[in-house]
Write a protein that binds this DNA or RNA. Sequence first.
DNA 1: ATTCAGACTTGATCTAGATCAGGAAAATCA
DNA 2: TGATTTTCCTGATCTAGATCAAGTCTGAAT
Lengths: 254, 254
Amino acid sequence: MNLTFIKFRHGVGEPKRHVTKPMPESHFPEVRGLHLFSQMADEHFLSLMRGTYVQTFPPQIELIQEGDPSDFLHVVLSGSIELFSSWNGRETTMAIVRPVSTFILAATIKDAPYLMSARTLEKSRIALIPSQDVRAVFDEDAGFARAIVTELAQCYRSVIKSTKDLKLRSSLEQLANYLLRQQARFGGEATFILPIEKRRLASQLGMTPENLSRAFKGLIPYGVEVNGNSITITDQSELARFAKPNVLIDDFHS
Amino acid sequence: MNLTFIKFRHGVGEPKRHVTKPMPESHFPEVRGLHLFSQMADEHFLSLMRGTYVQTFPPQIELIQEGDPSDFLHVVLSGSIELFSSWNGRETTMAIVRPVSTFILAATIKDAPYLMSARTLEKSRIALIPSQDVRAVFDEDAGFARAIVTELAQCYRSVIKSTKDLKLRSSLEQLANYLLRQQARFGGEATFILPIEKRRLASQLGMTPENLSRAFKGLIPYGVEVNGNSITITDQSELARFAKPNVLIDDFHS
DNA sequence: ATTCAGACTTGATCTAGATCAGGAAAATCA
DNA sequence: TGATTTTCCTGATCTAGATCAAGTCTGAAT
């Protein structure tokens, strides 16, 4: 496993809270459309939104530090967020969160400290819903409760899948499957753009940037062409034959 | 990562279902005492129990195969269960489940296929609650809903912790922390018994049995004595100084 | 444009941990 | 009780991937 030492930290120094603005009604439909909020009663939704704030953050801002109390449920409205963890001077990327979805739901539910830190990767708009409101409405609204539990089960299954990926596959196999997943996500076109920097992808796959670079070269025989952050898969079936994708690991929707 | 090929399989061949017996009322208090069932209305509990079966299984029986539809929520009443996953001829231990707790809750909730297989490690008594009953009662009983979501959040956080363990620590560090956790679990005595076979521990920690053996030797300088499955920690503080245990990884209760 | 910092690559090494090959000890079974 | 199986240990290799040390390239700032 890659035990990279942290060589630099981004956007740190000032843990000063950005001034947040109450959520404007214009954003309501966007949040309401989230699976998590679509099945609840209007009055409960509005009561949740009353306490909710929305803020746009610049890139590389640390929104959450692991160990902090979980005061807010976060919803990514735009941009992208990296969840990461540190121990003993090492750091690893745990996941990348994209719109529109929540993060650190489990900590909110349990009223327990965050297990992961979060930073913006790009300019991102985040809705912050007070955790205690979430817990209160959970007890009142069965539709919301159902949605929460489904979302949480989904999150759980995603982590299990990535653990399987990590423990059962070599880094070359992990990368191959990652590329197939991304390709599917972008409509199955032969060419697509990597949605994150390679060094973060490396951390996510549990390897060093150097080795990711070599892994890309290792996939050339299977029809993978790399040009900066543009990937072309010239021989889908050949790559799939090598990668052996599996619904119980790679299907991130069930 | 350890990509062990499966050399043999236990208790397989016959996927014949063991005949299950309806749950006797004498077991009700035991299940009722579970955090998951303690807060629900009596009538809902009884209605759940009506459809519940209890069965004692011999060791090395495969209860669940990954990919199967999730028909039952399982509760371990006694014994112990190994959750494991396979891909491309490799196998890895994902977790060990001990009484009294549930497993594959997420699959039950989502009505999705199991992501992990399960086998008994020893003679084990299991309660099987029909998944659709669980989902039905969830919608009726707020106390049960609350308990489910808490349990699920707990499971999620446990997997996150073990992922951090896996990605951020060397195998020696993982083993050291594992030993400290076990010691705490058994009341903090200097000497305790490993609750599972070493080869399974190896798989859980993502390494080969050979390397686990060497890892134990590597911990001798930090005051770890091994005698079969009996472990003695002669210098707790020295071991802890090396292991650097962390509440955000090693505290399995929050 | 020029400079500069950070991202990425490439090659040369190093190392943690896997694999292979025995053998000892323990558990299971006849 | 001895025979057989399985776990566990130990040493000798091997290898995937980390680390180290230059590079090049890119994109933003002056």
